[in-house]
């Protein structure tokens, strides 16, 4: 345990080196998850036959199985499945598989956030919009979505934090992110043990989560202006 300050600083630097990769995985997955999440939410709100059942099935699967299993299914299973159709994706970068898995996973949760926020705005607002002569798309853009966004923000923030933490599993398919780097760090260590390394890693995640939390709560404050009634 006799590690000097310099060694701790070295360790932090090495871990922080890989933070951009973690954030990239998070950002890319969030982007695709939002698109897919909105699509699923629309399907579930409009209750279109077949599509609705498919979406519900997908949600149930995603929410009832561990992310790690999903990650393995995508990384190991998808190439095996596609090979049958003579599509070879074995050469793809591991990162792509990770982002696919995280996107599919997060989309399921986001779709529920979006759907419940949309429903929370309520029929009355839509009727009020119709009563002043708006069309549905107008009502959606000008009345429903701005309100739904404010309602969804806290849950959205929680899901972004979950996503960040989820990316910590990427090392299991060989991605050298914060977690994947542990062995490399230990390879040329200076007497630092696994324990110290994971302490540093946890501090980095913790810090990143707090930053996200702060950003989300700042966004909440900004967007809640004029929505006093909703916040009460």
């Amino acid at each position: 345990m006799s590690t000097s300050l310099q060694e701790w600083i070295d360790l932090f630097t090495k871990v922080l080196d890989k933070l951009p990769l973690t954030l990239f995985m998070m950002g890319a997955s969030l982007f695709f998850a939002l698109i897919l999440g909105v699509l699923i939410a629309i399907i579930r709100i409009q209750k279109q036959p077949i599509l609705y059942q498919t979406a519900t099935f997908y949600l149930s699967f995603t929410r009832c199985t561990p992310l790690l299993v999903q990650l393995f299914l995508v990384y190991f299973g998808l190439p095996q499945l596609l090979l049958v159709f003579s599509i070879d994706i074995n050469s793809w970068d591991r990162l792509i598989f990770a982002i696919i898995a995280f996107s599919l996973h997060t989309a399921a949760y986001l779709s529920e956030v979006i759907r419940s926020a949309y429903l929370a705005v309520g029929e009355a607002q839509l009727e009020a919009a119709y009563s002043v002569g708006m069309s549905y798309p107008q009502a959606l853009r000008r009345i429903i979505l701005p309100q739904a966004f404010v309602i969804a923000l806290p849950n959205l923030g929680n899901n972004i934090i979950e996503l960040l933490k989820d990316t910590s599993l990427a090392f299991t398919i060989g991605i050298i992110d914060i977690m994947g780097q542990v062995r490399i760090i230990l390879g040329n260590n200076h007497g630092m043990g696994m324990f110290e390394v994971y302490i540093v890693i946890s501090l980095v995640y913790w810090g990143a989560c707090m930053v996200i939390e702060a950003v989300v709560s700042y966004a909440e404050k900004v967007f809640k202006k004029g929505h006093v009634g909703l916040s009460k």
């Binding site: 934090i161 933490k165 989820d166 910590s168 599993l169 977690m179 696994m194 324990f195 994971y198 302490i199 890693i201 946890s202 995640y205 913790w206 989560c209 707090m210 939390e213």
Partner: peptide, 10 residues
Amino acid sequence: GTPLIVQLYV
């Protein structure tokens, strides 16, 4: 604020 897997390792 930290992933469960990191907590397990810690």
